[in-house]
């Protein structure tokens, strides 16, 4: 999955990658979602506000490629009771800004706000907060090297959730 970007990417081009990711999570289609990430890509959802480290403090999710690959297969496994329930999501992303840009490579850090409406196990839930995407550019376009999801209620008790946000 690629997005064509000129040497100096415009924010509009970058947005397309974020929207694409959101649409794969809306379905959800983790097989296509994982292709947006680099081989060394990571997905991090801290459990504390302003958390600095994913490895030495508890997080809701900190997946590398290995865990993403396992989660992707588990997601469609018929013998995982938490996956018996259909899940439907609707993501809205806004306030997209380029926080950092390496002009020589085109690599950049994008911040945004998100709301995700999720229907799971008979109830509708609202998740919200901010995203930080670190994007890296190769010959085919941009991929996600790291995504950080800061839920505004990350320190509150959470219910079971089986999908990335």
């Amino acid at each position: 999955m690629t997005t064509i970007i000129s040497a100096n990417p415009s924010i509009r081009d970058i947005e397309q990658l974020l929207y694409q990711e959101a649409s794969f999570l809306d379905k959800p289609d983790l097989d296509r979602w994982i292709e947006l990430y680099t081989e060394d890509g990571t997905y991090w959802m801290p459990a504390r506000e302003d958390q600095e480290d994913p490895e030495f403090e508890l997080s809701h999710i900190y997946d590398d490629h290995v865990m993403m690959e396992i989660r992707r297969r588990n997601f469609v496994h018929p013998r995982a009771a938490s996956k018996d329930y259909k899940i439907r999501c609707s993501h809205i992303i806004s306030n997209i800004q380029m926080a950092e840009l390496d002009a020589s490579t085109g690599d950049c850090t994008i911040t945004s706000n998100f709301h995700a409406l999720v229907n799971y196990m008979g109830e509708q839930r609202m998740y919200g907060g901010s995203y930080t995407h670190r994007l890296t550019k190769d010959k085919d376009g941009y991929k996600i090297r790291h995504k950080r999801v800061d839920l505004i209620n990350c320190e509150e008790p959470q219910k079971s959730m089986i999908i990335y946000l």
Partner: peptide
Amino acid sequence: LKRTILYSRLINSSFGMVGPDDLTAYYR
């Protein structure tokens, strides 16, 4: 400590791949 945290994240997180299946059984 890294191992301790990894272990807890895997099984104790509500967004994990172990806990939600246990919880679904309790809920049912």
